[in-house]
Simulated scan of single mutants.
Amino acid sequence: MKKVIVILMALMLVVATSSSVSAHSGRLDKQGGHKCSAKSKQKGLCTGYHYHKKR
């Protein structure tokens, strides 16, 4: 039973950490978006101003 719990916890950890890999930093303005930083553009995470929240 302990092995099952350990395996489930490990899987949950993998899922939780893998979903945040594509996230990028940047504060949001009052419209819920922001301009991409030069680093984010270089990494291919975004190309310009974009929204994170519905307008």
Rank of each mutant, 00 (worst) to 15 (best):
K30I: 15
K35I: 07
A38P: 10
H52P: 01
L45H: 14
K2F: 10
R27A: 10
K30C: 15
Q42E: 14
I7T: 08
V21L: 14
H34N: 03
V21E: 08
H50N: 08
T17H: 09
C36N: 08
K2W: 10
G32L: 05
H50M: 03
Y49A: 03
K39V: 12
M12K: 07
R27F: 07
G48Q: 04
Y51M: 14
Y49G: 02
K43H: 11
G32K: 09
K39R: 14
V4Q: 06
L13A: 15
M12E: 08
I5H: 03
K3A: 05
H24C: 10
Q31W: 08
Q42T: 11
M9Q: 09
K54C: 09
K54T: 13
Q31D: 08
L13T: 13
S18K: 08
K41P: 01
S40V: 05
Y51A: 11
L11R: 02
M1C: 13
R55K: 10
H52E: 11
A38M: 08
Y49C: 08
Y49W: 06
V15E: 08
M1Q: 12
S20L: 11
K35N: 12
S19Q: 12
K30A: 15
Q42S: 15
H50G: 03
K41F: 04
V14D: 01
M9H: 04
S18V: 10
V6H: 07
S20C: 15
G33L: 04
M9A: 13
K43P: 02
V4E: 06
V14R: 03
Q31M: 12
K30Q: 12
G33Y: 03
R27S: 06
A38L: 14
G48R: 04
T47S: 15
L11K: 01
H34I: 02
L45V: 04
Q31I: 11
R27E: 07
G44A: 00
M9N: 01
K54H: 09
L11Q: 04
L8V: 05
S20W: 14
K54A: 06
R55A: 11
L13C: 13
S18G: 05
S22F: 15
H34D: 01
A23S: 09
R55S: 08
S40R: 03
S18I: 12
T47M: 06
G33P: 01
H50I: 00
L11A: 06
Y49T: 01
D29V: 04
L8E: 01
D29Y: 02
R27Y: 03
H52D: 10
S37P: 03
G32C: 09
S20G: 15
A38D: 15
